[in-house]
Amino acid sequence: MRTPFNHLAAPMHFYRWGARLVPWLGACTVVLLALGWWGGLVLAPPDYQQGDGFRIIYVHVPSAWMSLFVYVVMAGAGAVALIWRVKLAEVLMAASAPLGAWFTFLALATGSIWGKPMWGTYWVWDARLTSELILLFLYLGVIALLAANEDRRRASRAAAVLALVGVVNVPIIHFSVQWWSTLHQGPSVGSFGAPSIHSSMLVPLLVSALAFKCYYLTVLIMRARCEIVERERNSAWVREMLPR
């Protein structure tokens, strides 16, 4: 069964295509991040209640969105790896895990820094914060399982099961602020109706979020290429490519 999909999904072809995509995606990241943060940190007006302190959302909110997005990508790749045994899916799952963990850490850390002056505490055990912390542990679990077996293909299968089990946490995180009365505020963007954040603040936020997504894609491809070479080090095309 040879389809164009199979062809593209072959590690060798991904390795070559990825090399061409990385500089473009990297450039998009730099430009979008510069625009988003310039708009958010310089152009946007201070908030009517938080003053300049609100500007941490230009890091916090994109990281929090990415922590969920990367998890869904990782779990999706895990499912494909588990069912169809696609090598590239295993690679993308393995390359996503540390990135997602860092986005989660960044969301938790920036939230905590903002929480002390605004809420009056670094941390509370409310549903949103607790479920996001569980997400960090899920990422760490996937990373640990990937490292636990010398055979990377077996390790990927074990990690894929954990990634798949953990995906139920994603809707819990998203809806936690609506299901329970949490200290964390409800969503400003993405719920039904107009966003409850002024457009002068919203546009830089969306641009920053896009920049974070480009960053993820850039580094994902770079990490995946590295993982491919490590996994395929005994195959003919890698031997040919690398100087002996």
Binding site: Y48, G120, G186, S188, M201
Partner: peptide, 18 residues
């Protein structure tokens, strides 16, 4: 023993709030 401020989801410039 502890008072925490609960922030809402509204973000706007001071002039708009006024």
């Amino acid at each position: 023993e502890e008072v925490l401020a609960k922030h809402d989801e509204n973000y706007m410039p001071p002039e708009v709030a006024e």
